[in-house]
């Protein structure tokens, strides 16, 4: 039986109802890799984790991230994406315990690669970019991060990524987020109707 819908476009899809069940079972094939997207809301502010995207490659991840996390351009100055598997995640701590207090290694002094450091300052919030360090590997980067960035405020989790593994928007392309004027219809402020309700009530009275 062919599906008939209220929407003629759905009817035109000629969908056969009661299909063979096995035809919809999926293998792992089209499970895309995940990337983590980060947004810089304003010039000079740190990049902040926005959330993941699923994509077949880095370029697509970047495009998806732009759509998903910066389509309201007013809150965005730059974005970047990092393949999830390239992010080294520390242990999580809680109850005021600083993760850096669990780090006992000292920096090796062998500074041949650049790493970016992200901090989680409160469970349930987003990781924020803290800065970059030069180190020989991830463990060494963690020791360097402790030296550079440990403060009075406890850090509950650290993400470390090689700087080379980040794909970021170019400064000269910033005008892609300058869409506010033509996209007012995406904002709640564009739908004021109090006057209409007031006029209606006065008319009724």
């Amino acid at each position: 039986m062919i599906l008939k819908s209220l929407d003629p476009r759905v009817t035109r899809l000629s969908i056969e109802l009661s299909p063979d069940e096995s035809s919809v079972a999926k293998d792992g094939l089209d499970q895309f890799e995940t990337y983590e997207a980060f947004v810089q809301s304003k010039e000079g502010k740190p990049f902040e984790h926005a959330g993941p995207v699923h994509a077949p490659n880095e370029e697509m991840a970047f495009l998806f991230a732009k759509e998903q996390y910066s389509r309201r351009g007013m809150f965005c100055n730059a974005i970047c994406v990092i393949k999830t598997e390239n992010i080294k995640v520390s242990e999580y701590t809680d109850n005021g315990q600083d993760i850096y207090n669990l780090v006992t290694d000292h920096p090796s002094g062998n500074e041949n690669e650049s790493f970016e450091i992200f901090h989680l300052m409160k469970r349930g919030k987003q990781h924020k970019h803290e800065g970059s360090v030069l180190a020989k590997d991830f463990d060494d980067a963690m020791a360097m991060a402790k030296k550079e960035f440990q403060s009075d405020k406890p850090v509950f989790n650290v993400w470390i990524v090689k700087s080379a593994h980040i794909m970021a928007s170019e400064d000269e392309d910033k005008d892609i987020w300058d869409t506010l004027k033509e996209k007012q219809y995406r904002e709640a402020t564009d739908y004021k109707a109090a006057d209409k309700i007031k006029a209606f009530k006065e008319n009724q009275a």
Partner: peptide, 25 residues
């Protein structure tokens, strides 16, 4: 019920070639 699932299933099936193309560049 039947229409909602059928439309979603059809989108999944008819979009498969796109996902496969993306995965095998």
């Amino acid at each position: 019920n039947a229409e909602r699932i059928a439309v979603r299933r059809t989108a999944e099936e008819r979009g498969r070639w796109v996902r496969e193309a993306l995965l095998a560049p």
